[in-house]
Design a protein around this nucleic acid. Structure first.
Lengths: 216, 216
DNA sequence: ACCTGAACACCGTTCAAGT
DNA sequence: ACCTGAACACCGTTCAAGT
């Protein structure tokens, strides 16, 4: 007896459903059993299409990498880097579980391509080889760290970012933590939205300036 | 019948044993049952001293924060920031599980103190308030992202970093990924060790330069 | 070729019962 | 006050059996 409402299972459908589940409920709520149930199958069926949960998460991450997209081909190299980094941040915000898993899995095809594009742009930027190398890591750290920080505080113990921030504030004695309290208030009042691109430009401009200062 | 070789359980001993276990086998190998067994108790006994696993990890993270230590009191503010960040990196390397969990838990007392120290140093640095705010995040992102990147690749699927890098390289077609292959080789040959402090200085110097350019 | 029931070896956590 | 056996509701994964 076949259920006509149930399309056959394939890797693509599994990965898409897993991403939807992780987007909606967090990666902690992603289990093989729950994912299969959502698709109308049993957990064991998934193993016909995916080696194990680790490989599944790797495929999910590469699907996120594929969303990032390429920069315009005729853009100036560091402007193109900037565009890719901004697009990466957007993808991480669409899929809040991705940044935390990003460095714990080997790059798949899409992310390898993304890496190659970024490294080529740095190589063509006119920066000295060591600055190109460090610049690649610097922008990667920035986008990853910044996004994790934005998402992370929400996970502290509350359901959303603002509740987490308030709970954290409530535990701080005002006379011992004046700077911390001020800092958290700046976040709560949304006065820090431009921070991501400001620091990104600081890094990119700093690389160019350092390169020039060496007599490039 | 009491076992004389078994000192009584307390929160401190539990946290220390949990850190030792996570340092040695990774945070994935940390379970309440295994931890209790190591200590010579049953899993349920842990719940007399710790609310749950999440709180335990929070306590572990705050113990790592407590290891970081304070900068010398008479140091120039941004030099003191630099020292704290370098010490943070050392702590993250001693406890490779800590960076990945850092932003998913609310700061405990030691980390709150650390936050306050850093924010005070930025406030006293002479930087404009918005640059102080962004600088705090920029150095935090740098130390976290950089350490995760160093540790992360090892977790891909192999046991150590070098094996992971080689496995990654083996999957790249040489003519399609020349820059990526070159980049990974630079890591394998250890030509990138100074990268952490170079980019850290780039961020700190960039903040000062941007501040000065505004007419500070 | 694809799906699945039963089973294995684990989890975190609660609760009532012991001392 | 602290410890624990039994139990509950979960996990990921294997494997033999089905179609």
């Amino acid at each position: 007896m076949t259920d006509i409402r149930r399309p056959p299972l394939d890797t693509r459908r599994i990965v898409d459903a897993a991403i939807a589940l992780a987007d909606a409920e967090g990666i902690g709520a992603l289990s093989m059993r729950k994912l299969a149930r959502r698709l109308g199958f049993e957990a064991m069926s998934l193993y016909n299409h995916v080696a194990n949960k680790d490989e599944l998460i790797g495929l999910m991450l590469d699907a996120v990498a594929a969303e990032i997209g390429d920069p315009e081909p005729d853009a100036e190299p560091l402007a193109a880097v900037r565009a890719v980094v901004v697009a990466t941040r957007a993808a991480f915000i669409r899929h809040p579980w991705a940044a935390g898993a990003w460095l714990e899995h080997m790059p798949g095809p899409a992310r390898s391509r993304q890496m190659e594009v970024l490294l080529r742009l740095f190589a063509e930027s006119g920066l000295a080889p060591d600055l190109a190398h460090h610049g690649y890591h610097a922008v990667g750290n920035h986008v990853l760290g910044y996004t994790l920080q934005e998402i992370g505080m929400a996970l502290g113990s509350s359901d959303d970012l603002e509740a987490g921030a308030h709970e954290f504030l409530a535990g701080l004695e005002p006379d011992k933590f004046p700077h911390t309290i001020h800092h958290v208030h700046e976040h709560l009042e949304g006065r820090t939205s431009s921070s991501f691109e400001l620091v990104l430009d600081l890094i990119l401009d700093g690389l160019v300036r350092l390169n020039d200062a060496r007599g490039g």
